[in-house]
Design a protein around this nucleic acid. Structure first.
Lengths: 226, 226
DNA sequence: GCAAAAGTGTTCACACTACACCCATGT
DNA sequence: ACATGGGTGTAGTGTGAACACTTTTGC
């Protein structure tokens, strides 16, 4: 039995598309590279896989060390294999995307110097490597998945109003959705549970607060956007 | 700038789930391993990635050398990373699935000794490694994708009857679909073009032959199964 | 004429859209 | 009283599921 590691293998990395939702804007976390190649260019956070590490562990490592985050929604996206995608040599990137609530990691904002920044998805700068392609694929995945699967709650607080959820969907999908029909669909699908609590401090009528229904039996939800 | 290949990296392989449709049955190609580990067990065909090779190229290499096939529909499925998935050491597998028409590769049947065989998806034997998991994921992907995307034509001949297409969908999805409603949906979505030719040799009325509409503008198709 | 598969049409119910109206709260 | 956002209801339309009938062919 041969030892594979004796052979030359391509390097294996994970790149992360970290989505955050804040002030009615969907954003992505980017790092400003401080070394070649692509020095001073914005890129997705990433790291190389260690020999005994799972993707999950590596993702956590990236999120913790570079971004001070933990315990977030993660999903494998796609594996990018273009032989010339990294000028340093052959690097295969297993892209993942994460959904986080930026508010929860405000503590880590100290680390957030000029070299780590949120960028609205509508205003992504030029990216190094093939990261633009990765980002685009991640956004598409999120947009299609949110139409039939309860993803997106990870971007909000524990409790949220129907309006906030509605705005999130409109923001991610980039379309207008009828407020009342949306509400009915969410309720019919039993995506959320009414906590009975109402949010105080509003200028108008106090909206009801909902939380995500974690014990969702079967998924009836289907949004049908263009 | 460091040379990555100097470091120890996990080995990188591609495993293939090759689907074929024949005599109203969806099948998968399996290889009988003739070496350890999992000697004499059935496994998915696969191979290790070479340093300058793309996934696409590697898939072609596997299909050609092991199976005598070429020019097939291919799609990346998922990347499997469990550290213990291969007893020989750390191997990451980038799974792909392929759709082929077995009839077209009947020539290669000479190669098809006891060690390469089609297995109906309903009768998959115990598989080595984590290949059962890979197979399951591939089938699920195919089942969901066929409901909204014109995949599946690759499994049929160039020209086919509506009944054949209908049977294919029922077979892949494992449900009954109303013949007439199905036909209307396929036609409305402009998935197919009526060639005007009718198939001879039938015992009954001669069915019209269709071919896949390759110039499909936008995809209206949506099947909505269970 | 009969059986069996292929082609076409029709009804009906429900789901989704597009609305309107009332309620609660601050100014 | 009014403006603003929140909560609920309803009428109409269109799509899709369920179903029936006619046509073509071999025996």
């Amino acid at each position: 039995m041969k030892a594979f590691s004796a052979y030359k293998n391509p390097a294996l990395a994970v790149d992360l598309v970290v989505f955050g939702y804040h002030e009615k804007t969907l954003s992505v976390l980017l790092l400003n590279r401080n070394e070649e190649p692509f020095k001073d260019r914005w890129t997705l956070p990433g790291a190389f896989l260690q020999m005994e590490e799972s993707f999950q562990q590596l993702c956590s490592r990236i999120l913790q060390t570079k971004l001070g985050m933990d315990n977030v929604y993660l999903e494998q996206l796609y594996t990018f294999d273009a032989p010339d995608r990294d000028p340093r040599g052959r690097v295969i990137a297993v892209a993942h995307y994460a959904l986080i609530n930026p508010k929860k990691f405000a503590v880590a904002a100290g680390k957030m110097a000029n070299d780590v920044q949120w960028f609205p998805v509508k205003k992504i700068p030029a990216l190094g490597f093939d990261h633009k392609e990765i980002f685009t694929k991640a956004l598409q995945r999120l947009q299609s998945k949110i139409q039939y699967f309860p993803v997106g709650f990870q971007l909000l607080d524990e409790m949220f109003t129907m309006s906030e959820l509605h705005e999130l969907y409109e923001c991610i999908l980039g379309v207008e959705i009828d407020r009342r029909n949306f509400s009915r669909k969410i309720l019919d699908a039993e995506y959320v549970i009414n906590t009975g609590i109402k949010r105080e401090g509003s200028q108008n009528r106090r909206p009801e607060l909902f939380k995500f229904n974690k014990k969702l039996k079967q998924n009836n939800f289907q949004l049908n956007i263009s």
